[in-house]
Design a binder for these strands. Structure first.
Lengths: 340, 340
DNA sequence: TTGAAAGCGATACCAC
DNA sequence: GTGGTATCGCTTTCAA
């Protein structure tokens, strides 16, 4: 591998100046003669030239890189990543992925690192409901994904959490359950707060009391494994109550994993002994026995939309937050409506 | 957000030259007086300075970025990504992830893009057994992950595919099965070839004939969804044979998903009607009924090792390929050994 | 030990 | 239309 050709090499090969080559590369169509254009393009082709992104980045203060900060290895985020990837491919953008493991300090570090690398934008799934650096970063193109923060200067892409969780809870209530337990994630993130709200709304609508014992937190700011464990422990708690829960909702995929593990170990039959609704659809949902009723999030679209917002921000347009609909996918695990 | 401080600003603030600041930033400890060092560090702190990676990259022809090219959204690769991330964090490297969706043209494009972005190295899961660009790229730090290629100038990190699959097949044979079907991925990748070899070795060792009908290919170069579908179709084929398979091995996680779906639809009982062994362990393996026997790959370690190799390459050391052990995790789905 | 100055490769302004 | 050229922020000899 000899040295990579530069603008100079191309210019020499084509018998023009570097400025002209640069123009061919960047200018919109009609500003140069078809002849030089062709000459330059041919030279580029022949030398196998491709622009040095660092030089370009240095000059323009921007790159074709965007940063994506996820809190854990939840497949939900992987699905989002897919949407991000495919949308970026349309614009020749690349994605740097980093994982905060639900650690706020690490998260803030990552944002700083990304900014110092001059990525053109950041997609952030914040680990708390506040963002210490929000003022420092407020002029940088950041879009919040999945979770929102207080007094945010940043647009967000999220799902209809309240409605989604409300629907799930109602379904269980309609099936005759009076003791519906819920396994929430970290108390301090917006999705937890909103899903809890949906849950309480539904209970209220069905004349059921809100029992603190039935509301558990399985997310403990600890990342992937800790959430699975949290889902497990919460389920154990709910099933060992003096009056155990007869239905359980786990509000994310990782918590659901832990919950299913616990129920399996306890040998409770789903939905006969305990009805269950999870979150985030996945091929496993249909394979599992019983098939899992889940609240499905529009992950792929959330990924796409965040890139669109980033592009708008990039072009100095203002961008508004958007909320995408969740969908309750009814399968076997929630049981069937009892006739009353 | 006012303009980011530069070396100049720091130098002025500390009352030294920019070269000195640069030295503080890069030189190993003892080459400058403790006093200037402290002064400079203090100024950096105070201004919140962080170096511009583009300028640095332009100058050094290198970055703290590495590229990771995966073929699909198999959770196996996500686990590897985790190993990569955590190892990179130790060296302040960042990871650009891209997905080829098993498309060779796209893959080669991605390598070129990464090289033109001057990443310091690439971790590639190749989609075929050859690499068209291997000569063009041979001086670039590339490590092949999971899959190997022919006449490779690149070191690789892979698993003991032959042994792993052989063990799985033997287990099934020991359990009395004579018609063991296998669902392979793309015929053209090394893991498929090697796992098939392990399968045939085991059959041979147990005096069983190799039946073309029982050897199916569920991977069709089509990416994530197409592999799930492939696993499904292959299973349908194996179960609808005049003499159906009594045991099935699916050699990756996605194929396994499809296989389980098919078996569920066909209402075959596992392991009573059909014994089953999958690949790549995952929390779901234990949750599933029956619990899944799988060949588990050292994904996390594979991720770590590939970074170590990249670092060795980066320092011009030569690096050797390594092979990490697979492990058969026996659970319920393969049935128990029959006493004969 | 510290500093001046020469680029790294591309962009964009401004002459021609 | 095309071509000089200053410039982006940093690293790295080489002198002082």
């Amino acid at each position: 591998m000899t040295k990579k050709p530069t603008l100079h090499d191309v210019a020499k090969a084509a018998g023009v100046s570097i400025a002209t080559v640069s123009n061919v590369l960047n200018k919109k169509e009609k500003e140069l003669s078809e002849q030089t254009r062709r000459k330059v393009l041919e030279a580029i082709q022949r030398l196998g030239y491709s622009p040095n992104q660092h030089a370009r980045g240095l000059k323009k203060g921007k790159t074709n890189l965007i940063g994506f900060i996820i809190p854990d290895q939840n497949p939900f985020f992987m699905e989002i990543l897919k949407g991000i990837h495919e949308t970026c491919a349309e614009y020749d953008w690349q994605v740097i992925v980093a994982c905060s493991e639900e650690n706020e300090v690490r998260q803030n570090e990552l944002v700083d690192i990304f900014i110092s690398q001059q990525v053109s934008g950041i997609i952030l799934v914040p680990v708390t409901s506040t963002l210490a650096g929000k003022d420092k970063w407020s002029n940088f193109p950041i879009v919040l994904l999945d979770r929102e923060i207080e007094d945010s200067p940043f647009p967000s892409v999220s799902a209809t959490n309240i409605e989604g969780c409300c629907q799930a809870t109602e379904r269980l209530a309609m099936n005759g359950h009076q003791r519906i337990g819920i396994i929430l994630a970290s108390p301090d993130i917006s999705t937890t707060v909103q899903r809890r709200k949906g849950y309480e709304q539904a209970l209220h609508a069905h004349g059921l009391r809100i029992e603190p014992d039935l509301i558990t937190y399985g997310g403990e700011y600890g990342g992937t494994q800790s959430q699975i464990n949290g889902g497990y422990r919460s389920t154990m708690h709910l099933l060992n109550l003096p009056q155990p829960a007869t239905a359980i909702i786990a509000i994310n995929h990782l918590l659901m994993l832990g919950a299913l593990k616990a129920m399996k170990e306890m040998k409770v039959r789903v939905p006969d002994d305990v009805a269950f609704i999870g979150f985030d659809d996945h091929p496993w949902s249909e394979i599992n026995t019983p098939q899992l009723t889940v609240v499905s999030q529009p992950a792929y679209d959330m990924g796409r939309q965040s890139i669109h917002i980033l592009r708008a921000l990039d072009e100095d347009k203002t961008a508004r937050s958007i909320k995408l609909p969740m969908k309750l996918i009814i399968r076997e695990s929630c049981g069937t409506a009892t006739m009353m």
